[in-house]
Design a protein around this nucleic acid. Structure first.
Lengths: 214, 214
DNA sequence: CCACGGATGTGGACACCGGCAACATGGACA
DNA sequence: TGTCCATGTTGCCGGTGTCCACATCCGTGG
C-alpha cells in the first residue's frame, strides 16, 4: 500500500564512480526523484511525467511503479524536496546574519526570511509551485519546515522584545500569507510582468508594511 | 488565429424555451464555457477536459475547436469567468455597505473586500485556482477587475483621510498579497485543515494587521 | 555450491486525452 | 434555386497513466 522504501532515501548519490550500469539500478527511486525534480523545475507540476522521467533515467516505463504507488506519490516526493530546498535556503540566509538578540537584527531576520522566500519562488517557479500544488497530510513537527523557520524567527522577536507577546498569535499566518501571496502574484498574477527593480521595491514595501502591522 | 467570436459571447443564454435541439447548436461556445466552468468548479484547472466537456454538452469532440484554438484558450475563458465572478462578489459585498466617506466605513470597506476575496476562494476553490492558474496578458483597464476594486477602495481611503497619500503607493500590492496568500494557504497550504472558526479568526487578525501596516 | 523466492525491471495492452485532417451538413445569401 | 462557408462529425495519431503477465537479478537457506 505504501511505498516508503525502508529509510534508504538518500537522494543525490547517483553516478557511482565505477559507472557500472548494474541494472537492477541500485538507487532507482532516488534517480527518479532527481529527474522528476528537474521536470518540476523546468515546467511545474504538469511537467512531471512518469514515462518521460523513466525514459530520461534510462529505465523502462512502469519501473517507477516499484517505487511509487502512482504519479501523485512521485509528485508528493517532489513537493517534499521543493519544500526542503525552500527551508534550506531560508536557513542559509538566516545563517548569514549576525544572530545576537538585540532589537534591530531580530526584525532584520524576519525581513531576510521573507525576502528569501520570495526570491526562491522567483528563482525556481516550477519547483516552488509544485511544492505547494500537491495536497499532503503535512508532517508538522513544530519548528521544522519552512513554516517552522518563520515561527522561530517570530518567537525570537518576542524574546528580543521587539514584538509584544500578545501580538504573537496569528503573526506567523499574516507574514506567511503576505510573502506567499506576493510570490504567487509575481509568478502568475497581475505582478507577472513587473520589471525586477519595481518588484524588489514592492517587496521591500510589503515587508515593511507587514512588520509595521504586527 | 484568434477565435474571439464576434462579440456574441453572451454566456448563460442556454436552454432556449423551444427546446429545439437545432444542431448547429446556436450557442455552442457559451455552452462549452459553462460546462468547462462546472468542471473547474468541481476539480480545478486539471478537471477542465475538452473531450469530456464536449460530451457533456452533447456534442462531438473536436466541435470545440471551431470555437477555441486549443485547451488553453478554453481555460483562459474559464479563468476570465472566474475572475469576473470574484469581482462581482466583491462589488456586491461593497454595495451592502453604507458608502458615505467618513473614516471608519472607509476602512470597513477594505476589510469587507478582503474578507469576501477569501470567502470566494474557500467557497469556490476550483474556480478560484483556475482563475489564477492560467497565464493571460491581462486586459488591465484601471479600476476594472478584482484588482481594480481593491485599488478603488484604497483610493477612497485616501480621499476620506484614513490613509495618508504618501502611504498609498504599494498599499494595493500588500493588501492583495495578504488576502491572496491567505486564501492559497487555506486551500492547499499548511492552513488547509484549520477548522472554520479558527480560520475566520485568523482572517480577521490578518485583515487587522494589514490595515494597521498600511 | 546451488536452487529458490521475492524484489526489481520489461513489454504489452487498455482507456483516455489533445490535436490534426478529411468529410458532412445545413443555413444564409446571391 | 444553387452555391459557399461556418459549423459539427468521424477517423486517426502520438502521448500518458495504469494494470497485467513475464523476465531477471540477488540474497538466503539448504
Amino acid at each position: 500500500m505504501d511505498t516508503t522504501a525502508g529509510e534508504v532515501d538518500t537522494v543525490n548519490m547517483l553516478e557511482d564512480p565505477g559507472g557500472a550500469r548494474r541494472y537492477h539500478h541500485g538507487n532507482l527511486r532516488a534517480a527518479l526523484i532527481d529527474t522528476a525534480v528537474d521536470q518540476a523545475r523546468s515546467g511545474g507540476a504538469d511537467a512531471v511525467v512518469l514515462r518521460d522521467a523513466a525514459r530520461r533515467t534510462g529505465v523502462s516505463h512502469n519501473a517507477a511503479y516499484r517505487h511509487f504507488a502512482d504519479r501523485d506519490d512521485l509528485l508528493a516526493e517532489v513537493s517534499r524536496q521543493g519544500m526542503a530546498e525552500l527551508e534550506r535556503r531560508m536557513r542559509d540566509r538566516l545563517a548569514d546574519l549576525p544572530d545576537d538578540d538585540t532589537g534591530e537584527p531580530a526584525s532584520a531576520r524576519l525581513r531576510a526570511v521573507g525576502r528569501e522566500y520570495v526570491h526562491f519562488a522567483l528563482a525556481e517557479p516550477g519547483l516552488f509551485s509544485t511544492a505547494f500544488a500537491c495536497a499532503r497530510p503535512e508532517d508538522g513537527a513544530p519548528g521544522q519546515g519552512a513554516y517552522g523557520v518563520l515561527s522561530t524567527v517570530l518567537d525570537d522577536m518576542v524574546t528580543a522584545g521587539v514584538l509584544p507577546a500578545e501580538r504573537r498569535p496569528g503573526a506567523d499566518v499574516t507574514c506567511w500569507a503576505g510573502v506567499h501571496g506576493f510570490a504567487v502574484l509575481c509568478l502568475q498574477g497581475p505582478l507577472r510582468d513587473l520589471p525586477e527593480d519595481d518588484r524588489e521595491a514592492q517587496l521591500e514595501g510589503l515587508l515593511e508594511r507587514l512588520a509595521r502591522g504586527l
